[in-house]
Nucleic acid binder design. Structure first.
Lengths: 225, 225
DNA sequence: ATTCAAATAATTGTCGACAATATAGAGTTT
DNA sequence: AAACTCTATATTGTCGACAATTATTTGAAT
């Protein structure tokens, strides 16, 4: 799961942007907070040159927003924006599932099924362990996205949208408190892929994500009272 | 159509990156060519600081690819990659059409219909004018994307994918040499939106884009002989 | 002639200093 | 007391120089 940014970065700017991404996603740098160049330069023991380049990269990934002559802030997702992301995610992961039906190898599908068996065990054993469930959920989605064999789709979902979604998790961590239902949905999707039924896989994946979205939306409304 | 990057940039790096995007999309900077920092700095009369920041932004937009200590090159799309982009586009614009059914105002829909009337005139009058047809096509898609009212969708499609697709147009300019059919498809989509039929609008839009994709694919095969 | 090695040149990466702009604060006026 | 202006401070933007790395050329050996 770790190291979405592969290979040890050989340049300060690259290393820095990776560290910043991690800090932001983990919440060490609060969302909405201002990014002070002098502060960060001191903290990370670098000069402002590479730091600014790193910030520019985060800007490209939409993790920070810059205003000329004013500065950069970590993006703060309001519920509205999170819903927008989920709509995009639904469209893209639906397509990924469809493509995965065409492009996943039999071996990959076998592994996917194995993964779901592990998840079932994990859920039955430790009803509590939220963390592994969440990672497991990611794992499942990752494999299907990778299985689409569409590099751009992989890039978009794995290293752009998921960063943003993760940013949210650290505060509303109970997103998947419906592990059994989620697992059942995963199994259905997996079966569709096994049967190479692209249409069905796409529909199921979209419904799966749309359901998650509605749960989150509902959660927001409960919080709002 | 112009100025996807709004507001006059107040900083050299921002202005530069806009200019570079234009140059790359237009083909003035050939795809696949190396980006030499000293050269560009001379050409645009700027120092390397802002230039490097601009390049970092293009990197985020996936218009250039960088290798540490070696340099940046303009991405060169092979047919395979273009197909990947079209798959992503199909998924996203399909979703955009669906959302547009919910979120476009009646006035916006009326304008959209007016636009199609103009296109019909333009097509009947000047059978040749490729340029306006292409811009018209963009216009139609733009309005629906905007009509989705999903800012992230707008950002993704308008200022990321479309840049890449445009890069291709400058050499294979005959992409829409089927203006009447395209217009008919546009009308169908528009009607679905008018009826607020999200399901249908999405299906039609996806089929529309998928058709375009197949035409391009076919074109590649013809070229390959 | 070809291949390899070393030296040279060119390019990328990093830094610190300075300029331009925005923010914060003190002082004044209504 | 509130609002406004002017000043001082801090932050961002830009630049040129230097260091690190890679690419190129030169020359020697086979």
């Amino acid at each position: 799961m770790e190291s979405l940014q592969p290979k040890d970065p050989q340049t300060i700017a690259d290393r820095l942007s990776d560290e910043l991404i991690t800090s932001i996603v983990k919440g060490d740098i609060a969302s909405g907070s201002k990014i002070s160049e002098p502060d960060l330069a001191r903290t990370y023991k670098v000069s402002r040159g590479p730091l600014r380049e790193a910030i520019r990269r985060l800007e490209g990934l939409h993790l920070v927003a810059r205003i000329p002559h004013v500065g950069a802030r970590v993006v703060s997702l309001d519920p509205q924006q999170l819903m927008e992301i989920y709509q995009v995610r639904e469209a893209l992961e639906g397509m990924a599932a469809r493509l995965a039906c065409k492009n996943m190898t039999n071996d990959e599908i076998t592994e996917l099924k194995g993964l779901l068996d592990e998840h079932e065990l994990s859920i039955n054993q430790s009803e509590g362990s939220e963390y592994f469930q969440r990672e497991g959920d990611f794992d499942f989605h990752y494999r299907i996205i990778q299985g689409s064999k569409n590099q751009r789709l992989v890039e978009l979902l794995c290293s752009e949208l998921y960063h943003l979604i993760r940013m949210y998790r650290f505060r509303s961590s109970q997103i998947h408190s419906r592990p059994h239902k989620a697992l059942a949905e995963h199994r259905h999707i997996c079966t569709a892929i096994e049967h190479r039924d692209g249409e069905l896989a796409e529909i199921l994946m979209r419904r799966h994500i749309s359901t998650a979205q509605k749960h989150i939306e509902q959660q927001f409304q409960e919080e709002g009272e």
